[in-house]
């Protein structure tokens, strides 16, 4: 049994390393991650530290210029990137865990449990997540990164639950699960010991998508003024930029680069995900 999993993992890793999309996506993601980690070293300013110069275009001293409040946009962007990544990670993780647990339980237990969980899933799948997030966030007086991650995680799991359920159903009747069941293993043990490891690569793909999704939701909330009440994030920069007419005043450096980073970050995640999908699903590979 274990050998089976090990050899599959090995084969998976082998193919993953050769996939062009995975490589390109990882490179881009690594670059953005590096920017978040070492980016602040290249600026003397903090994200909310006045520089004394308002609305300056990009220069050597201010690579992305300054905004109306004299803040350095580069400093804001690299620090904001940190918190956006953190929210994406935490929110994505929460959503992935909830989605996997619900999907696994529904798919494995079947019957009424399945009916109930899938009804719940379908309901929350239809309710627009951002609208629900707005209503929840608006009632929270002091919002921090943790709270934001939590409410995003708690509202964006449904599609994962549905997808994981489908995966579980297909794995459930495979030989190795049947063998485990015949040998008298309990339901929980089969779920945790047999099905989950075989879904590991799938879970990573789900997490990557949830990671990106959480970043997008957080950016959206921040943009509506429902982000963290303190600190900085990419969404907050954009909110401020739009609120204070950065575009109309010609301060493109205030509004465009932070969003560009989000777009590139998400593109890198989606590309990695697609590459993994091609590896796991040979029918998607282009053969020529």
């Amino acid at each position: 049994m274990e050998q089976h999993t090990v050899s599959r993992t090995k084969e998976f890793l082998h193919h993953i390393r050769r996939n062009r999309k995975v490589k390109a996506g990882l490179a881009l993601f690594a670059a953005i991650l590096a920017l978040a980690i070492v980016g602040p070293l290249f600026t003397p300013y903090g994200p909310l530290e006045p520089t004394g110069e308002a609305g300056r275009p990009p220069s050597l001293e201010h690579p992305l210029g300054t905004n109306t409040f004299t803040y350095d946009v580069y400093a804001q962007t690299v620090y904001g990137l940190r918190s956006s990544l953190l929210i994406g990670f935490l929110g994505g993780l929460i959503a992935t865990v909830i989605g996997i647990l619900i999907g696994l339980a529904a798919g494995y237990m079947g019957g009424l449990v399945d009916e109930f969980l899938m009804m719940l899933t379908n309901i929350f799948l239809v309710i627009p997540t951002l609208a629900l997030l707005i209503v929840i966030a608006a009632y929270i007086e002091y919002r921090g990164i943790m709270i934001e991650s939590l409410i995003i995680g708690l509202t964006s799991w449904p599609w994962t639950a549905r997808a994981v359920r489908a995966q579980t159903l297909s794995l459930k009747n495979r030989e190795f699960v049947l063998v485990a069941r015949m040998s008298g293993a309990s339901g929980l043990r089969i779920m945790v010991g047999e099905i989950l490891p075989n879904m590991f690569s799938y879970a990573i793909m789900v997490f990557i998508l949830q990671f990106g999704g959480a970043i997008l939701y957080a950016v959206g909330l921040d943009f509506l003024g429902l982000g963290p009440t303190k600190g900085i994030s990419l969404g907050l920069i954009l909110q401020q930029a739009v609120l204070w007419n950065a575009i109309q005043l010609g301060m493109w450096w205030w509004a465009i680069p932070p969003g560009l980073i989000i777009a590139l970050l998400l593109a890198s995640l989606y590309t990695i995900n697609t590459g993994m999908d091609e590896v796991l699903n040979p029918r998607l590979r282009r053969l020529e």
Binding site: F223, L238, V242, I256, G259, L260, I262, A263, L264, A267
Partner: peptide
């Protein structure tokens, strides 16, 4: 395109 936030 699909990675861009709508409002951006």
């Amino acid at each position: 395109l699909t990675s861009s936030p709508y409002f951006w």
